[in-house]
């Protein structure tokens, strides 16, 4: 029988050295909620398992310009942590709506990003908050905007010897909302999800983010729709236009959960709703 090696390093240098040794033959394990189903059903057969839960990467800090979130911070921590609730409420909301309590206790923010599911909940909120990720390898580290990280379903720019160590969420003002539609109410994957952030200057929209989940091969920033709002006075009409534009930028597929037709139709309503509800939200002030 083929040997599978298991590593649970406590030092980052150790972890990156192991990754450099095994390259794409190693599977990185954090909460296990995405990897274990694949292992259980023999969909992946790694030569080595690198458990990164003992690297001390489960923490949330408040820096001068950004929240720094360790890669193995669990979804449950994101949902309940006061700093996330205060400075990134859309992320807390996405965390709260993702999976069940038992999944939230295990699933990590780094895993949600690395798995690169088009339906990932946390990623949609993180994109609306202009988050970036820190990638570490034995030869160095780099910071990458999350918007530049995804290439396709379960495809990213992450190199086989790289590890996500931190997520940076810039502290910036704005009103945000995260909404999600599933096929049922409890424990459900997104049929369509949306995160929005509005930076307002009186009733003028200074800047906007509209991000869709499950509506394209990767979580999608709707840049043309955002542009429609930028510098404009926010009206119900404009919000309707922006929602229509956001959906025009999407390219959803049909699957077990919904058809592309439904995703577009309900997605438009969801974007409108998110924008309208964001206006009523308390403004985040860094």
């Amino acid at each position: 029988m083929r040997e599978v090696l298991y590593y649970a390093p406590t030092e980052l240098t150790e972890a990156t050295a192991i990754l450099a040794d095994h390259r794409d033959k190693a599977a990185v394990l954090a909460g296990g909620t995405d990897l274990l189903p694949k292992l259980n059903y023999y969909e992946v057969k790694p030569h080595a398992l690198l458990y990164i839960g003992r690297l001390g990467l489960s923490s949330i800090h408040n820096g001068s310009s950004a929240l720094t979130i360790g890669a193995t911070t669990t979804t449950a921590d994101l949902a309940t942590h006061h700093l996330v609730q205060q400075y990134a409420p859309a992320l807390a909301q996405a965390a709260r709506l993702s999976g069940s309590v038992a999944i939230q206790n295990a699933a990590t923010i780094g895993g949600n990003i690395a798995n690169a599911s088009p339906a990932a909940d946390l990623v949609v909120a993180l994109l609306a908050l202009d988050a970036s990720v820190r990638l570490l390898s034995h030869s160095g580290q780099r910071d990458v905007h999350l918007a530049d990280f995804f290439l396709g379903p379960h495809l990213t720019i992450l190199q086989p010897d790289e590890l996500i160590t931190q997520i940076h969420v810039p502290l910036s003002p704005g009103k945000t909302e995260f909404l999600k539609l599933g096929r049922r109410k409890g424990q459900t994957l997104a049929v369509v999800s949306v995160a929005v952030r509005l930076q307002l200057d009186g009733d003028l929209c200074h800047d906007a983010r509209i991000v869709l989940g499950s509506m394209a091969p990767t979580p999608l920033r709707c840049r043309t729709a955002e542009h429609l709002l930028r510098g404009q006075k926010i009206t119900t009409d404009l919000i309707h236009q922006a929602a229509t534009q956001a959906i025009a930028e999407s390219s959803p597929i049909t699957d077990q959960r919904a058809t592309a037709w439904y995703r577009k139709k309900a997605g438009e309503a969801l974007v409108q709703r998110a924008l309208l509800q964001a206006l009523d939200k308390k403004e985040v002030r860094p």
Binding site: R183, R184, K185, G186, Q187, T188, R257
Partner: peptide
């Protein structure tokens, strides 16, 4: 996960 039984929340 592709089969949608009602949960407590439903």
């Amino acid at each position: 996960g592709d089969y949608f039984m009602p949960t407590f929340e439903d």
